[in-house]
């Protein structure tokens, strides 16, 4: 069972603000799912490679060449805060 502090710690790592009610809810919810994951302990993975992709072909690469997309104005249209051609970002501290 995850503790209240553990849930709050995960939420901060995940950059998600939670209400107190949500914290209580996720204590139960996440714990139930994590308990279920224990089933994997029964799988014998000795010698099994831990693969990160099932891609039948390995990734292809393209030359790293700068090009003009013409999308900048449309991208900036979506900015919640902007000044000229810059995104506005809050102070870190």
């Amino acid at each position: 069972m995850l503790s209240t502090d553990e849930v709050k710690h995960i939420a901060t790592l995940a950059r998600i603000g939670l209400t107190d009610a949500e914290v209580a809810h996720f204590e139960r919810d996440l714990s139930a799912v994590l308990d279920w994951f224990e089933e994997l302990k029964a799988a014998d993975t000795a010698g099994a490679p831990a693969e990160t992709s099932m891609a039948p072909e390995s990734n292809r690469t393209v030359p790293d060449v700068a090009e003009t997309s013409g999308e900048a104005p449309r991208i900036l249209e979506n900015a919640p805060g902007r000044k000229d051609n810059y995104f506005k970002v809050k102070s870190v501290f």
Binding site: V7, A14, L18, T19, F26, L30, V92
Partner: peptide
């Protein structure tokens, strides 16, 4: 307010419960 608060508050309001659950898992 700080950048971290923007992240926390935006995702608190903008994301639904199942998405929050999976991100946290």
């Amino acid at each position: 307010s700080t950048l971290l608060e923007t992240y926390l508050d935006t995702r608190k309001v903008g994301l639904g419960p199942e998405v929050k659950r999976r991100i946290m898992l």
